[in-house]
Design a protein around this nucleic acid. Structure first.
Length: 273
DNA sequence: ATGTCAGGCGTAGCCTGA
């Protein structure tokens, strides 16, 4: 059981979550209630959809979190919340590409280099957004190489990857396979990212697949079980080896005004004072 | 049968993005 209590043997545990809130303005009360209800040390957020001045910093800090955020109007926007200080915060990628999308923020906390990422959706295969997605993923790979050189500590790449790694991460392959979220090309790009030294901490706890993190609002996706697993926590091997559980908190996709994503939460036998 | 949300613009209802 991941939520509700900490087993004695796991009292050294810490939790890391990733949650695409689809507007922090629209999700603020839900998010604050969720943060207050659970003990989660590090929370990566995506799709804030607000400029930094509208980020609810005070309310989040009142719950005992430090917050680093990188927002923009209407689109994108990412944040990292931590119950420990956030050091060496960096936004965007340290490359020469001119890219105004607020899709990446990184910080060091609990001795881990935590990265909150909102991968491009890609629109449709024949849109201009799809090559941007592939290029962005290739750039992220190089950014991770640089980050691992600069910060020789375990990394956790968390976010809405907009990629379902396997066909059994897709409820209805006939509907989604070959699209921007589930095709050979984006899966190869994701493997290239993982090849720098990151592993999916969630999948080993759900080897049968069929566990999803996003359901389209349209067509009653959640009610019909028509989901995809596109939100992920990838970690360096030494951190991944200490993962002791991972879930999708489907409760956050139910009830009044949910995001179209549910949070993914992983627990680690890991603590740094 | 392009189904639902969210934000922008601007103050109604259409547009974009997902």
């Amino acid at each position: 059981m991941l939520f509700g209590f900490r087993e004695e043997r796991y009292k050294q545990a810490m939790r890391i979550a990733t949650y695409n809130v689809n507007s922090i303005r629209a999700r603020k009360e839900r998010l604050l209630a969720w943060l207050a209800r659970h003990e989660i040390e590090v929370v990566c957020l995506q799709e804030l959809k607000v400029e930094d001045s509208a980020f609810p910093r005070e309310e989040i800090e009142a719950l005992g979190y430090h917050a680093a955020f990188h927002g923009q109007k209407t689109y994108n926007g990412v944040a990292i919340l931590s119950r420990a200080p956030l050091e060496d915060v960096s936004i965007a990628m340290d490359d020469a590409v001119d890219d105004s999308h607020a899709r990446l923020i990184a910080a060091t906390t609990y001795g881990i280099r935590v990265i909150s990422a909102y991968f491009p959706n890609g629109g449709s295969i024949d849109s201009e957004k799809y090559p941007y997605k592939l290029k962005w993923m290739a750039r992220l790979r190089e950014e991770l190489v640089r980050s691992m050189q600069r910060y020789p500590i375990p990394h956790a790449l968390c976010g809405d990857f907009n990629v379902a790694p396997f066909e059994d991460d897709v409820a209805r392959p006939q509907e989604f396979e070959g699209g921007v979220l589930a095709n050979d090309e984006v899966r190869a790009a994701l493997r290239a990212i993982a090849d720098v030294g990151l592993v999916d901490v969630f999948r080993p706890f759900h080897p049968q697949g069929g566990v999803y993190s996003w359901w389209d609002y349209r067509g009653g996706g959640f009610e019909r079980g028509n989901g995809l697993r596109i939100d992920h926590i990838y970690a360096s091997p030494e951190l991944a080896a200490r993962c002791i559980g991972a879930i999708v908190d489907r409760e956050e996709r139910r009830g009044t005004a949910p995001s179209d994503h549910a949070p993914v939460v992983a627990e680690f036998d890991w603590w740094v004072d």
